[in-house]
Design a protein around this nucleic acid. Structure first.
Lengths: 199, 199
DNA sequence: TCGGCGATTGTGGATATCCACAATTAATCG
DNA sequence: CGATTAATTGTGGATATCCACAATCGCCGA
């Protein structure tokens, strides 16, 4: 499943028109006629962006947005609205919406925003992926190894670590070698670069 | 100069009213009657936040905002407007405005936003300060020391560094000790933690 | 021209790390 | 119970790092 432009609008004509518009720039579009529909189809792995109408019968676009936030949605959301007001726009953006566009919109501007959102999402996914791979490596560490990793990251010598944990230096060396192996690093410096920012 | 709430509005009554309102929560306010006034008084060291009216004779709030962005302003900006429209709000927020509030506003909400902005600024200042101190330490390094620091951060052994730079290991050791001293670290791990993210 | 600074190098000894070879103990799981 | 895994420890040698003591060379400003 590659990057998609998800579109949620209860107006058939708009879905059609936007579908064609997006296609004109080679963007694949997956339309949904209601917030409920999209919510049912949603999964955290969806990549791309979401074009979201606000005024819809049933669940509103804003309600869907809030729900998606709770679910941990990462898709950049571009709101579309014919009847937006300022507080609504401000609140949406402050909650993390990518953009907030009033209808009628300029086709090219909208397409530009969509492409910008797609780029953002691609970047997010990439860094999320590398952070995922790091996490999976971390999970393979035993408790003891993680413990010792912390002390290494605190810049302590094996000897000091051994003292603090009341074990022999040799044991520390073994754990150290194991965790370096599991984390895929060769030196404490590399480990620290992997880990700084996290934790 | 501690944290201040800077206020720019060309309406005398609003300046007065907001001044009293802010005072009611113990917030010091420095009013300006025009964008030009504030711009003349502005300096990068100003700490606090900026309450900025949009519609003003002369330079508008939005124009002032853009100018301040160019100048590297760090003050969080809360726009106040009686005649805002959605695209204006969206554009301001996407450019980094802290908030965008329509008049008439709810007093307590506005005060909450102001306090939030002040907290944000305080945090920003704190991290900017520590990053400043790091930069000044970096500038005290000689060219050679910086060069060797890079190689240390690449996780290379002194021996390898010596080979690459075509100098003796002893020289590398000396530079290493010097730069650790200047950077205020005891180990390569600490150095890496200081530097990762930067550079 | 003298003094200071930065880069450079050496010696030698104290500490640390790296690692192969080897082994014991305790807990968990099928 | 037998297999697996984690934690533990030891020995000994090869490498690296840390550091005091000491010194040379070139450049630049007073």
């Amino acid at each position: 499943m590659s990057a998609q432009v998800y579109l949620v609008d209860d107006d058939d004509a708009i879905r059609d028109a936007l579908g064609w518009l997006l296609q004109s720039r080679g963007l694949a579009c997956i339309p949904h006629a209601s917030a409920e529909d999209f919510l049912a189809a949603w999964s955290p792995q969806m990549a791309g962006c979401l074009l979201l109408d606000i005024r819809m019968s049933g669940m509103s676009g804003l309600q869907l947005f809030d729900r998606l936030l709770e679910l941990g949605n990462a898709l950049p959301v571009i709101f579309l609205t014919g009847h937006g007001d300022v507080p609504m726009a401000v609140s949406a953006l402050k909650k993390g919406a990518f953009d907030f566009v009033e209808k009628p919109f300029n086709d090219n501007e909208l397409l530009d925003r969509v492409e910008e959102a797609l780029r953002l999402d691609a970047g997010n996914r990439a860094s999320a992926a590398s952070s995922e791979s790091l996490n999976s490596r971390l999970e393979r560490l035993t408790v003891r190894e993680r413990q010792i990793m912390e002390l290494i990251l605190a810049g302590k010598y094996n000897k000091v670590i051994a003292d603090e944990l009341q074990i022999s230096m040799r044991t520390v060396e073994v754990h150290r070698a194991h965790l370096f192996e599991k984390m895929g690093v060769r030196t404490a410096v590399e480990l620290s670069q992997l880990m700084t920012g996290r934790r």
